[in-house]
Computed example of a mutant assay.
Amino acid sequence: MARWLPLAFVVLPACALFHRPPRPVHAPPEEAARFEFPVTGIPEEGLRAIPGDMARAIQLAMEDFYPWDKKPPASERPGWECLYRRESYGVYAAPYEGAVILVSIVLEPGACGERAVPYDMGALYAIDTRNWRILAIQR
């Protein structure tokens, strides 16, 4: 047992390097209690049906393109913080050949106001839905 003790001092700190993705933020209970869902359920206007495999493919591509723990670089140009917000990007997805879903992530026009930003920001992902992995990325 004493032989393995030094190994524990190496392995346990290494476990700290593996971080779980952050959990979604929830509103405080008193605020959540004030929210009222529509009696009829989800409104028809603006309703989008997203199949489960497509939702998972989108999530996989977005996590690669913009991980939750990504921080804007300190030397970034002033006013370009919009490039570091997930909501600045639109996502388009479509089934492709076999079990592949293509996911396109593009900077939304006007997301950064009138600033001259590189609107070629984004990527096209090929997601393998059999093994849930990224097959290829086109930037």
Score class of each variant (00 low, 15 high):
A2Y: 11
R3T: 05
L7K: 01
F9G: 14
V10E: 00
V11A: 15
V11T: 10
L12D: 05
L12W: 12
P13C: 02
C15K: 02
R20L: 12
R20N: 07
P21C: 00
P24V: 04
V25M: 09
H26F: 14
H26S: 13
P28M: 07
P28G: 02
P29N: 06
E31S: 11
E31A: 15
E31Q: 14
A33L: 10
A33G: 04
R34L: 12
F35T: 01
E36I: 03
P38G: 06
P38Q: 07
I42G: 00
I42W: 14
E45P: 01
G46S: 01
R48V: 15
A49M: 12
A49R: 10
A49E: 13
I50A: 08
I50H: 02
P51R: 07
P51Y: 06
P51F: 07
G52A: 15
D53M: 10
R56W: 09
R56C: 04
Q59V: 04
Q59H: 12
Q59I: 01
L60F: 05
L60C: 04
A61G: 10
A61T: 08
M62N: 07
E63K: 13
D64K: 08
F65W: 04
F65Q: 03
F65P: 03
D69Q: 12
D69M: 14
K71V: 12
P73F: 14
G79H: 11
W80L: 12
E81H: 12
C82H: 09
L83D: 09
Y84Q: 01
R86H: 14
S88K: 05
V91F: 12
Y92A: 13
A94P: 00
P95W: 02
Y96D: 13
G98W: 03
G98C: 03
V100L: 05
I101P: 05
I101R: 05
L102Q: 09
V103S: 08
V103Q: 08
V103F: 05
S104P: 00
S104M: 12
S104C: 08
S104A: 15
P109S: 08
A111Q: 07
A111Y: 04
C112D: 10
R115G: 00
R115T: 00
A116P: 01
P118T: 00
Y119E: 10
M121N: 09
G122Y: 03
L124E: 03
A126P: 03
A126V: 00
A126M: 02
A126G: 14
I127A: 02
D128A: 05
T129D: 10
R130W: 01
N131Y: 12
I134S: 07
L135R: 14
L135I: 11
L135D: 14
L135S: 13
I137V: 15
I137Q: 04
Q138S: 15
R139N: 05
R139K: 10
